[in-house]
Design a protein around this nucleic acid. Structure first.
Lengths: 216, 216
DNA sequence: TTTAATTACCCTACGCTGTAGGGAGTTACG
DNA sequence: CGTAACTCCCTACAGCGTAGGGTAATTAAA
C-alpha cells in the first residue's frame, strides 16, 4: 500500500505537474506527457481499483517501461496526489449559482457525491492527505463562495464546508462499501448472512447490544 | 499497500479471532495468542505507522517467523480489521449516562476523537471497511442508545450517529494531518511556506480563487 | 555548423512485501 | 500406542517501488 507520503521529490517538479506547467527542456522530445500518465492511471484505478495500479502496469498501458515514468512523475505518492486533484477537477462548478445558499451547497455536495462514487479510490487516497491543487482548491473555493456574504466568520464558513465534505465522504464510503461488498466477497447479501449470521448470532447473544441489533 | 480485502480465509476463524473465541485444539500448545499478536501489531502501528507494520516485522517483535502468524490470523487484511476493532474497544462507555442526549453524544464523540488521534492508522484502515466486531458494535450501540427514546425513527437515529461519526473522522483526519505534516516533510510550517509559497503564488495568481485564498 | 550539454528511455538489480508449500516435531484423542 | 491434528520453521515465488548506469536523441551554445 502506498501509505507513504510526498516530499521526497523536487517540489517544483511536483507543483508543475499538479498545475500543468510546461517548461522547455533540452533533450529528446518526450513521448508522453504528465497529463497522459495521470489520465491512464485514473482509468486503471477506475477499472481495477487502487490495488491494480502499479507503476509497471501503468507503464505497460502506455507502452513504456516502469522507470520511464519517473521522468514525468517524482514517485507514486505524488502520482496519486495528482490523480486525486485531477479527479476533483471533473466537478463542474455552477456558472450561474442557485439563489439560496442551501441550494448552492446541495448542488456542490451532489456533485462531490457523484464524483466519489465514480472514483471510489479517492476515498482511499484522501484518507489522510489534503492537497493544494487546482481541482480541490476550486471545489473548496466554490463551497466557501456558496456560504459567503451571510455574515459568517471565515472560521465558521470553513467549519460548515468541512462538515459538509466530511458527511459526503462518509456517506459515499458507505455507499461504495455497499456497492462493492458483493464483488469483493463473491457473495450475495443473502449468502453472506447465511454464512455469518449464525456465527454472529452466537456471539451477539452473549454480549448484548440491544439498540444496535434492533436498528441493524 | 494492503488495499485488499478479507473474505479469503475461513469465516469462522476470522470471527473467532474478532470475538475472542477460543476453541480446544489438538496439536502442541500455541506459544502465542491472537490477542498478543493484535496487541503487538497495534503497538507497531502506533509507533511507526501502518507502513511500518509488516508480517515479518511483527513476527520479529514476537520472536517467531512470519509464517507462524498465519496459524493465528488468516491474513494481513483480517489482522488489520481486528486491530481496528480492538482499538475501538478501548473506548470506555459511560456507566452512568449524562442527562441530555447532547451531552451523551458529545462525550462519545470526544472519546472517538481521542481514540483516532492516538491511533491515527485507524483512519487509513477504516477508509473503506466497516466491521461487525465487539469494539465497533459497542460504540455504535452506545451512540444509538444516546439518541434512543427521543421519538426518532430508527433510520433517523442511524443517520444522526453516522453524521456525527463522519464529522469526527473528518476532523480527526485534519488534526492528524496537521500534527504529522512536519514529521513527514521534515519541514516546519515556515520552511514549507518559504519553499512552496512562491511557487504556489505563481500559479494561484493566474487562476484566482478569491474566497479560498482569503480564508486559507 | 559544429560541439557540448541535457534529457528520455531502457535494462538490470536491490530490498521489500504478502503468502503458498512442505517438512519436523509436539500434543491430544480413539 | 498409533494416528490425526496442530504449531512452527525454512524455502521460495511473484510482485512491488525505485536506485543506478548506459545509449541514443535533441537542443542550446560556440
Amino acid at each position: 500500500m502506498p501509505t507513504e507520503y510526498s516530499g521526497t521529490g523536487d517540489p517544483r517538479r511536483t507543483i508543475d505537474l499538479l498545475w500543468g506547467v510546461h517548461r522547455r527542456r533540452r533533450g529528446p522530445r518526450p513521448s508522453l506527457s504528465g497529463e497522459q500518465i495521470v489520465a491512464a492511471a485514473i482509468q486503471i484505478a477506475d477499472r481495477e481499483g487502487l490495488g491494480g495500479l502499479s507503476m509497471r502496469r501503468l507503464a505497460d498501458e502506455l507502452g513504456v517501461t516502469a522507470m520511464s515514468l519517473y521522468g514525468y512523475v517524482p514517485g507514486k505518492a505524488e502520482l496519486l496526489d495528482v490523480m486525486a486533484d485531477r479527479a476533483y477537477g471533473e466537478i463542474t462548478l455552477p456558472g450561474v449559482p442557485a439563489t439560496t445558499w442551501r441550494a448552492r451547497l446541495a448542488a456542490l455536495a451532489q456533485q462531490h457525491w457523484t464524483l466519489l462514487l465514480s472514483h471510489p479510490w479517492l476515498l482511499q487516497i484522501s484518507a489522510s492527505r489534503p492537497l493544494l491543487g487546482p481541482g480541490m482548491t476550486a471545489l473548496y473555493d466554490a463551497e466557501l463562495t456558496a456560504v459567503d456574504g451571510l455574515g459568517l466568520t471565515d472560521i465558521d464558513m470553513d467549519l460548515i464546508v468541512s462538515l459538509l465534505d466530511d458527511y459526503v465522504r462518509g456517506a459515499a464510503r458507505g455507499a461504495v462499501e455497499a456497492a462493492g461488498a458483493q464483488d469483493r466477497t463473491g457473495m450475495t447479501d443473502q449468502q453472506w448472512w447465511e454464512t455469518y449470521g449464525p456465527l454472529l448470532a452466537e456471539v451477539l447473544n452473549q454480549a448484548s447490544y440491544p439498540v444496535a441489533v434492533r436498528v441493524g
